[in-house]
Design a protein around this nucleic acid. Structure first.
Lengths: 179, 179
DNA sequence: TCCAACATGTAACATGTTACATGATTCA
DNA sequence: TGAATCATGTAACATGTTACATGTTGGA
């Protein structure tokens, strides 16, 4: 349900192509929502035929043509309606935690190996988020005001990753028997 | 993909019915994976016809009959194969964060109202997890050993909720302009 | 008398993933 | 010469949600 609304939130700021939006899902917004490019293109098509978006083809000489989507009044209406309805609490789905939960069936060394891989991923993700934070902090106060709310979501991303990494360190010690 | 494996992990410990498993998804395991009862029943049927589970009907006089599923050797094999493959990093999907990200389009009072509702939910979830932790801590050392790995996942759940609530307090202050 | 817990499902629909498909440009 | 980035999609399949459907027992 919320992919549509994630796209609307992004498009409420700027018109964008499916490709642009997919890129944004790899960046900051991707921390709390994401979708494959295939799904984004499909969804944009649906939203356009529902009248939420207008689509213009931008011809580019050096690069492939772009389909630029712009939010319509109907789209803004749909966004506002959605925003004023309560959001469902989020659901966490983490396959690694299932493995850890059922990790008795696996040698400890394997569990630790996989934990280490996840630690590497989370570190990468954390430093990416911290990079965005630095960009934000380099802005003027006025510009910061504009991104006040996105910055709040970024802060949750950062603290969640830090919390995860701290937990992973403890967990690693327990698994290696150094606890 | 991982619903099957969540169920296998649970069934590797004890035979259980669809209802039992659904209840477990509301408890501790539900922190990192969950499914509706409809989906669980459907999945169990699929797994049984794949030979991963055996199904026996337990006739109860005072309550409705139960279909008790038991993991087979093939099921254990599938579980082990899955456990030894790397798990994909988890994806976070939180509609409330999209709303906050795009919250410019909404009055602050509404955002705060919704934040408060989510705070209440997270507090509830935290105290539930802490209840489970207390049960764990009441066990003997030997019993604790058995649940060592599930306890690790529980600790992540608890610290995540605490982290979320701390962030929510800060966020609330920013939104009310007391920052 | 009504609600919660116990117990299992079907059907329609919505959402998301994976494999496949194309083709230009830029950088190493 | 080969990979990465830009740019858009189709088709098959897997997963998940919502509405509907049924019926018992025990407690407030």
């Amino acid at each position: 349900m919320s992919l549509k609304h994630s796209l609307l939130v992004l498009l409420a700021d700027n018109p964008a192509s499916g490709y642009d939006l997919s890129q944004q899902f790899k960046g900051s917004v991707g921390f709390f929502w994401n979708a494959s490019h295939q799904q984004v293109y499909k969804e944009l098509k649906t939203m356009a035929s529902a009248g939420w978006l207008d689509c213009d083809t931008e011809i580019q000489s050096d690069r492939p043509d772009k389909k630029v989507y712009t939010i319509t009044d109907a789209g803004r209406g749909a966004l506002t309606r959605w925003l004023s309805q309560p959001a469902k609490p989020n659901k966490y789905k983490d396959a690694f935690l299932i493995k850890l939960y059922g990790g008795r069936h696996l040698p400890r060394t394997e569990l630790i190996k996989e934990l280490d891989e996840h630690i590497a991923l989370h570190r990468k993700s954390l430093s990416k988020l911290q990079g965005i934070e630095q960009e934000y902090q380099a802005l003027t106060k006025d510009q910061q005001q504009l991104f006040e709310l996105p910055y709040l979501t970024l802060k949750l991303g950062i603290s969640s990753e830090q919390n995860w990494l701290a937990w992973a360190q403890d967990t690693r010690e327990v698994l290696s028997g150094n606890a």
